[in-house]
Design a binder for these strands. Structure first.
Lengths: 118, 118
DNA sequence: CTGTATCCCATACGATACTG
DNA sequence: CAGTATCGTATGGGATACAG
């Protein structure tokens, strides 16, 4: 038994030392906010996401979409049972609670580019 | 020469495919938002930061502070020339532009804990 | 069209010991 | 007090080929 264990926050089986790190644990990483940002406008197919994000690899996009789905932020809907497949991704109600935050994140990025460009 | 290279955003020598990823490139990672969150209240000494973040290692805290300083988000001020040292960290004016965003990040973490706890 | 499988690498992060 | 040095591990993510 550890002595004076710091009080940890728990969500989806992971532990965080602070409410800010909990958020970052869910939307952090190189691609999740980018995916969410593009889904703010509405539903997108897998191929449409790829077009919006030409520099991500298929593997990574697939993994990140799965992680977002597992955290309940996005829905995955399959429209065909045989190839060629049609799959659409959209924000869940829970995911939509992130809308103002994702927009703020994008806006601060724009702000930096405009005011602190090097 | 590559064909149809996607238009990239540049800041501090790094490239980003999207304004949202630019922000995440600056404040992303496991600890940066936690440090910034604690500095929202005002200046803190190194040892005070350590107390607020008992689960980070000294090495990592040191590296993240240095990275934040290099990106111009925090100031490092040394008050003594010989041990024991006194060093204080505070937000720069640029760092203060992140205040509403960091608060939103922390608030969404709280919101998740209250409404979607498992 | 929408992914997986395999392999590999870079980086982030942790543990511990040590220093000005 | 405020860090570095050193070493080890875990994870994220890229490249490419292949599958349902």
């Amino acid at each position: 038994m550890k002595e004076s264990a710091p009080r940890m926050l728990k969500f989806k089986g992971k532990e965080y030392p602070c409410c800010a790190s909990l958020t970052m644990g869910i939307i952090g990483g190189k691609w999740k906010t980018v995916i969410l940002f593009h889904l703010l406008e509405g539903t997108l197919r897998y191929s449409e996401l790829r077009k919006e994000m030409p520099t991500v690899t298929e593997r990574t996009l697939s993994l990140q979409l799965k992680a977002l789905e597992e955290d309940g932020l996005i829905n995955r809907k399959v429209y065909t049972s045989k190839p060629p497949l049609k799959v659409e991704y959209s924000l869940t109600d829970f995911g939509k609670t992130l809308t103002p935050l994702i927009q703020s994140i994008a806006n601060w990025g724009d702000f930096v580019l405009e005011n602190y460009a090097d």
